[in-house]
Design a protein around this nucleic acid. Sequence first.
DNA 1: CTGAAAGCGCTAACAC
DNA 2: GTGTTAGCGCTTTCAG
Lengths: 329, 329
Amino acid sequence: MKRVTIYDVANEANVSLATVSRVINGLEIVREDTRIRVNQAIEKLGYKPNAIAQGLALQKTTSIALLVPEASFNYTGQIISGLLDVAKIYKYNITLHTTSEAIIQIGEIIENIIKSRVDGVIIYNDKLMMDELSALTKYNFPIVVVGNQLSSDNIASVYVNLQKAMFELVSSYLDKGMTDIAIIQDRKNKYMVEQLIKGASQAFERKGLVFENFIEIPREYRSSYTYLREYFKKHKHQLVVAHRDSQAMAVINAASEAGLSVPKDMEVVCIIDSKYNSMMRPQISSFAIPSYDLGAVAMRVMTKMLNQSPIEDKEIELSYLYTPRQSTK
Amino acid sequence: MKRVTIYDVANEANVSLATVSRVINGLEIVREDTRIRVNQAIEKLGYKPNAIAQGLALQKTTSIALLVPEASFNYTGQIISGLLDVAKIYKYNITLHTTSEAIIQIGEIIENIIKSRVDGVIIYNDKLMMDELSALTKYNFPIVVVGNQLSSDNIASVYVNLQKAMFELVSSYLDKGMTDIAIIQDRKNKYMVEQLIKGASQAFERKGLVFENFIEIPREYRSSYTYLREYFKKHKHQLVVAHRDSQAMAVINAASEAGLSVPKDMEVVCIIDSKYNSMMRPQISSFAIPSYDLGAVAMRVMTKMLNQSPIEDKEIELSYLYTPRQSTK
DNA sequence: CTGAAAGCGCTAACAC
DNA sequence: GTGTTAGCGCTTTCAG
């Protein structure tokens, strides 16, 4: 199919290309009959405006870049889903970029994003902090960070206060007199675990205690499970907190092999779960983190920034809900 | 930061924009010293070529559209991951589009893709078949379909032969004299289940039998689990095949509630599993479907089509591997 | 080896 | 209301 341009339509309809532009954008007033004529021509020729050319002329692309870590999508899936739904409403396209463990690549990705001249960038990344973002901020297009509390001139963020969540959870156990509480720590999700530790420490401090139970998965272990199997042969806690349901499940399975029964001998809680949690036995007590909303709100904020609309607050905190299940008493 | 264009660089380096274009594209021969001068200017000004303008001039965007159903990403995640990794190698950008259940939207999405002038489209979709694709084929850019066997002039496909997989699986059970075999059927993944049924039917026919055990989840049930719980109070099979581990898990949990033990009283197999399968008890026997490769190969084929490279075969079948686990004897 | 100039398809003043 | 025209930033002949 030959490319049909705005000129072809103009010819067909016997008007100037400016008029065609007017009707496709519906901005200015065009006389009824000529509008109809133009629309017929468009229909007849099967004309579709070239978004690339529009982008050049308008200096905007109506597409925003999404930057997510690696590509498991196990937990970002919901976020992306929310993002896309809202993006669709506002007619924004999403270009998907993933950051691998290798930090070196990040420069390349950002370069790529800049070349693409997207209107904005949404980032979900535990590791990427202000410093790494600076490369992006120089080009001062709006940035929305999902998952971290963070803001500046053209950066907004949408997040859940995990520290507070953890504080409340740990406090409630401490109140019951249970102090043997441990957190699973692994290399990934470093930022997230840090927040959990802060929250726990805070709760301990309040009781005049010190929190120091980190179950750190050593680098040499390919999977947490392998390590945990060893670990629970020698250790036991009253409560173990994992960040994800998969980690929690590894804990439960490992503990079970070591003869520990959850929740009888040990309770387990995770922060974020997936749809699989409902299928697991025991089902894991978790915080209901509004992942979908995290994405949807992020995209909404982005559209506001793009429209220069005033934003009440650049750091938007979404709420969580602790949901006890079978893995706790 | 002010936009810096190729003109600015040309000025700074005291050359024409044509020369700058040459050095950034590294195509034609440019004298050593002027090349260095230009590169210095680029460095100094922080110039990044505008991909939009390049796209306009070159009539190509180096970006390809990815169309996936809804947005669960539970099973497409791996595919997307493979896709992105290869896309990165070839410097292609991916724009992400999701198709919801509502068919009406599909036209809008396709229109959007066409306007974006992507270089190609990769589609993973059980439902979308030739007819729906026609809107795309008219614009004759390359299309790669993931998951369906399908091809034509500018359409290639990468898939796994589920029918064959199912045929082999069912045959092996029939050979053992087990004929009470059922397939879980739901509204989603219709195409996939169809293939499974074909494979099973074929195996049954070969034995002079007829396959007719479909456990169809009625529309009114929000989750399969709710229905299955009722179902297994009254029914029981020797083998139940589900397409996904989540479905299989629902079967196992429901059966378990009805007093059936898997695999003792009933065996369960699923076709595609996720990383969660390794955490489930029992772990579900499944076919190892090379999801990542499905994506990676699809992208590779796409790049070939874009380069007009000859393609040996437009229908690429990837292999699976049946992996018995705890849910079968 | 390098520069001038004509597009690529569209938008947005500015005329009429 | 509608047409004219100058860009948007880059690539690519075609000269020199």
